[in-house]
Design a protein around this nucleic acid. Sequence first.
DNA 1: CTGTTTACCTGGGGGC
DNA 2: TGCCCCCAGGTAAACA
Length: 273
Amino acid sequence: MPELPEVETVVRGLKKEVINKKITRVTSSYQKIVKQSFSSFKKALAGQKISSISRHGKYSFLSLNNKKTIIVHLRMTGQLFITPTTQKKDKHTHLEIFFGSNKHKLIYRDIRKFGRFELIDTDKINTYLKEKKLGPDALTIKLNDFQDNLQKKNLILKAALLDQSVIAGLGNIYVDEVLIREKLSPLKMTQTLKPLKVKTMLSTIKKVLKEAILKKGTSYSDYVNSYGEKGKFQLHLRAYQQHGQPCYHCGTLINKMKTAGRGTHYCPKCQKL
DNA sequence: CTGTTTACCTGGGGGC
DNA sequence: TGCCCCCAGGTAAACA
């Protein structure tokens, strides 16, 4: 599923490919993908250029030169990538953006149709982030803010790291990967964490995310980057979907349980409560 | 108000 | 081969 490293990889690719290209046409065969009416969305995009692209957590922002911004969230199985205009769309392609005199189009594919597009005023991005209760981005969050957000609620650690208001960008894969590297139990309560442990955990969060970005993300199931290619971080997973495999650190078999409503992979020896 | 559960979707895999 | 059921998990909405 697309988490921070996957969204960052897509954003970096799109920056190279679609900045300053004029949008000529937008089509959709599943208009629910767009939050507001598709006809107004289509009208607002036509004739505009994408002037800048940014990301916060798992949200990406494609800003147009008419002071509007397209917000994209890929949710579980969303794919946003460039493909030749001659490529015929398949049944999972729900949106296509065409550019003037260009051999390529930007398409949105999503098997489970959970992803969403939304159009807002560019100067309201910060308001939007507040409305969604999005916390600081995981790559840039300051230790003090992370510490405060963790202490505010006494949550199970796994749930706290998945909570986008605490830290934005982590999902099920990277939370499990961080916890096994930190030898922390997913069941530990946040208020029992020592300040020094919070510090090392945050540096591990940033380290794992950066490594995953270098590997162009994790393609466990459907994720592909802006060129439709798979990532390579799945080769470096130590916990996620590794149940039955020996632990990277001690050789004990990785276990799987359900925590905070999610599949949670952990080493029963390294990650004791 | 806050924590918990369900809905949104489809494909894949297990059981039979 | 095929049918049924469950599972995958990000977020919003409904619920207790």
